[in-house]
Design a protein around this nucleic acid. Sequence first.
DNA 1: TCTCTATGTTGACGGTGCTGACATTTGCAC
DNA 2: GTGCAAATGTCAGCACCGTCAACATAGAGA
Lengths: 197, 197
Amino acid sequence: MNKGSYHHGDLRQALIAAALAVVERGGAEALSLRELAESVGVSRAAPYRHFADRDDLLACVAARGFEDLNVGYEAALASPGDGRARMRIASQVYVDFAERRPGLFRLMFESDLLARDQPPNVLIGPANHAYQLLWRAVAGADPRADEKTVKARTITMWSTVYGFLALDRARRFKPFMTEPLTRAEIVEAVITAATGV
Amino acid sequence: MNKGSYHHGDLRQALIAAALAVVERGGAEALSLRELAESVGVSRAAPYRHFADRDDLLACVAARGFEDLNVGYEAALASPGDGRARMRIASQVYVDFAERRPGLFRLMFESDLLARDQPPNVLIGPANHAYQLLWRAVAGADPRADEKTVKARTITMWSTVYGFLALDRARRFKPFMTEPLTRAEIVEAVITAATGV
DNA sequence: TCTCTATGTTGACGGTGCTGACATTTGCAC
DNA sequence: GTGCAAATGTCAGCACCGTCAACATAGAGA
């Protein structure tokens, strides 16, 4: 495909892949479109043939992130053990994702991409799928709970795990992480508090 | 002081006040130093006589935010009722702060200002004071708990409340906020789950 | 009054996202 | 095959940004 000159071959996918690599570590604010274009060996304006603007590209990157997260969720839901054990594994998947790809995690859960009146189309599907899988994990842990209860539990559990990850990344727990508690113990305590198992 | 010309009078405080007003709503990324300077009636480079750079100004704004939050915490800790009731009130103070000044809240708890090797000097004091007040609220709710327990409880409680506020602001709970649950009910449920009271 | 210092201004540099005009390549219809 | 239109690249330039060096002004203390 790539002739070594004028036309790139599959610039769109190349840009998403390169952007993903940058965002994974440094988050959305580390991404410069000009730099990105240069790193792929193309002129500054070329990306605009494939993405409306910066946010459009970021939405595609975030969508890719949700797809990867969903793969982990699917595996957690298919794992052996009872519903409570599966919910715990799903939480661990979320924690691992946040720790391995912090910038991407931030893009997915802190950016305002999904807060818009009209969220990016590419993002809606994968994001909603993630919500459904999480819901299913929580509901499966207590089949007798009604809808209202499952909603409230999903929200509080998600809040606890996400809140810990976000505050920890921003080093807000620094004064608490000393002495008797190790970080691993804290992560354990948070997951237990969140899932009740 | 202000002669209507060359010298401003108290540019430093004027800049902090104006920046605070911008950041409160739109967060740090809404702040343009050039725009800010113009809004105060001064040239683009003038702020650099009072702040080393953009981050220095943002640190002062964040410090002001922590000071305001601490006033609320102090009031919560001095309120009537038992320790558990005071902890609940402290949580409500945090929630109110986040809802009234979302951008400032984000600057205080999501920015990397405090994650640096050498955090800004102006910020360390007020931030640490906030941590101590929160700690005192949690410890006061159960005087018999040991240090390890108090630390773990502080972290999980803070995580739950903060996580809810952050995810809610980013509209990640949109699919869950429908039908049987009102938002007020959810806030109640989250505070109850976090504080256990 | 004179001078030193604090404070404000101007112009410039390199960076950013984005656009309109132009160039090249590819693929499809004939 | 040929020719034309659409897809995809380039280039120059706009407006904005944070920041800095050089210069101008005002106020305070000797």
